[in-house]
Design a protein around this nucleic acid. Structure first.
Lengths: 109, 109
DNA sequence: TTTTGGTACTTTGTGATACAAGGTATTAAA
DNA sequence: TTTAATACCTTGTATCACAAAGTACCAAAA
């Protein structure tokens, strides 16, 4: 309740995060830590405890698949890739996102 | 889990709804049923069980105030109006919203 | 007067989400 | 063997939107 500005952003992020993940993976396979880095670059801060369950959810829904790959340093990485079903979902999310933007614009006039 | 498309929209709405309410009330005082009607006009379907707790939350946070007004037909109406604090919050939400739009655009390239 | 239909406000329980905080495991270098 | 860095995972909590109820007011019809 202290940092209202951050809370506002956090609330607005809800539901958009899945959209971001699918969008990123639609362009290139990636593993969790690299996804976090990229989201940080575009000012969408996400922590591990948020991302890992999200990736597992999307995998269980058949939107993502993964494979293990050796890392040049450290433990192996779990590379996620988007599936055909994931691309279908992404198309729906594109539509939903555009609808929401249009809705806000209408409200704002 | 059946209607995935609706679920996607519902999730994306989270956090944006408060923004919509404040934006609407920044232009004109309104009571719950009229707010629902207006949101329906712009394809943002909201039900009573969602809106009422939200209005109460925002009132408790000092973002909104209300007054009772007689209705031409039926029980009295609770008209909500935005407070100065609410307008400050709205300004922050405007900023947060624009940031999120920019973030998605960056991800999409 | 009683009933009916419409309007308006409210509450309870549920599922989903993001986060904080902590834990486990692998690898290479010190 | 210890340390640091990397990477993955889990648990508990707060918040949110919604479904599904309930309560209350008012006016017109029966």
């Amino acid at each position: 309740m202290e940092n209202i500005s951050e809370n506002v952003r956090s609330q607005m992020r809800k539901g958009v995060l899945e959209y971001c993940i699918l969008s990123l993976l639609a362009k290139e396979d990636a593993y969790a830590t690299s996804i976090i880095s990229r989201l940080k670059e575009v000012n969408m801060i996400v922590v591990e405890g948020t991302l890992y369950p999200l990736l597992i959810r999307q995998k269980n829904q058949g939107l993502l698949a993964y494979r293990w790959e050796e890392s040049p340093q450290g433990p192996p990485r779990k590379y996620y890739s988007i599936t055909d079903k994931g691309r279908e979902q992404l198309a729906q999310m594109d539509e939903a996102w555009n609808d929401i933007i249009a809705t806000i614009e209408k409200i704002k006039n």
